Amino acid sequence: MPDRPLRLLKSEKKAIGAKQTRKAIEAGLAKEVYIAKDAEHHVVERIIELCREKAINIVYIDTMDELGELCGIDVGAASIAVLE
């Protein structure tokens, strides 16, 4: 369960997309990660591994479109990282 209401995601500082999410985790900047359940496994697999290694909470959202909408973007997103 996220530690903030989902509607507040739009105002959070975040990294959007699998590549940017992975970079944020590797740089130690991510405090929570959101992953779309319908994202292709090979796209988010490394992100899930990194979150487990670094004990970062993962919140699963049903669809990429829903995750994009929660972030305030007009396209789907496989993952996002909420930054410190």
Rank of each mutant, 00 (worst) to 15 (best):
D3K: 14
D3F: 11
D3P: 01
D3Q: 11
R4E: 13
R4A: 13
P5C: 01
L6N: 09
L6T: 00
L6I: 04
R7F: 10
R7V: 05
L8Q: 07
S11G: 12
S11A: 14
K13C: 08
K13M: 13
K13I: 14
K14Q: 11
K14P: 05
K14G: 09
K14N: 03
A15C: 03
I16E: 04
I16K: 01
G17N: 03
K19A: 12
Q20G: 01
Q20D: 12
T21D: 07
R22E: 14
A24K: 00
I25D: 07
E26L: 13
A27H: 02
G28R: 11
G28P: 07
L29I: 00
L29Q: 08
A30W: 04
A30M: 10
K31L: 10
E32D: 03
E32Q: 12
E32F: 01
E32V: 09
E32R: 01
Y34K: 03
I35P: 00
D38L: 00
E40S: 06
H41N: 12
H41I: 10
V43E: 12
R46G: 06
I48M: 14
I48N: 09
E49C: 06
C51A: 09
E53Q: 14
K54W: 04
A55W: 07
A55E: 15
A55G: 14
A55H: 13
I56C: 09
N57K: 10
I58K: 00
I58S: 00
I61A: 00
D62E: 12
T63H: 06
M64L: 02
D65A: 10
D65N: 07
E66W: 00
L67D: 01
G68I: 12
L70S: 06
L70T: 03
L70P: 02
G72E: 10
I73M: 06
D74T: 06
D74K: 12
V75P: 01
G76H: 12
G76M: 07
A77E: 01
A81T: 12
E84K: 15
